[in-house]
Structure formats: structure tokens, C-alpha cells
């Protein structure tokens, strides 16, 4: 499995293909600290006003902030609005 990923990674580098599709990784876009956009997620683990945990391929993505609102949520993407202070991956 891990070897398979290595092959995919090098293939993506050679062919200059987008890695988020090849490796099924989340694509995260932030607009300042106001909005965060996560594509390719694997579901929500925890949701409170101050902390959101989202499952992704390479671990859990933890977002810490204030007044966090799930603006938009569909099978592929999540849009979170609020005052974002921290974004981190936890294994």
C-alpha cells in the first residue's frame, strides 16, 4: 500500500498531474482567516463552535477558531466560515 503511494507520487511528479487527485489528498484553500475550503474530505468527526475535526486521507484535520459555521457541506467539499486560528494535521 505504501509502495503503491510512492509510485503514484513519483508518477504525478513526472507527468505533472495534480497530486490531490492522484493521491486522493485533501485540497485546502484559505481566504485569510475568514474562510477555509476543504475539498476531498472523508467526513466530519467533531463539530463545535470552537473546534472542527475533519477526517481526510492523511490524517485528521483540526481547525481551531471562534464562531465556526459550516457554510456549506456536501460529499466532496466543506466550507467553514468564522475566525480561524489554527489548522493542523493530527495522525
Amino acid at each position: 500500500m505504501k509502495k503503491n503511494d510512492e509510485v503514484k507520487k513519483s508518477l504525478a511528479e513526472i507527468l505533472e498531474l495534480p497530486k490531490d487527485i492522484m493521491l486522493d489528498l485533501p485540497k485546502i484553500i484559505m481566504i485569510g482567516n475568514l474562510q477555509i475550503y476543504i475539498e476531498n474530505h472523508k467526513g466530519i468527526l467533531e463539530y463545535t463552535n470552537n473546534r472542527i475535526r475533519i477526517n481526510t486521507k492523511n490524517g485528521v484535520l483540526r481547525i481551531i477558531g471562534k464562531n465556526l459555521v459550516l457554510k456549506n457541506i456536501i460529499i466532496e467539499e466543506i466550507v467553514i466560515v468564522g475566525e480561524i486560528n489554527q489548522v493542523e494535521f493530527i495522525d
Binding site: 463539530y47 463545535t48 457554510k71
Partner: peptide
Amino acid sequence: ALERFINICISKEIYLWDIKRVDHTTLEA
């Protein structure tokens, strides 16, 4: 299990937006 509720909604393709956590056991959407 509010997170579970959201996840199931997503998988059943029920579109939720403006989800707000009111307190520990309540949620508005």
C-alpha cells in the same frame, strides 16, 4: 451524535448549509 447526523446527510446527498452549533446537543441548519 450530531456529527454522525451531518455525515449521514452528506452521504444521502441531503444538502445542508449554514450549520451552526448552538450548544453541545443542539445544532441549527
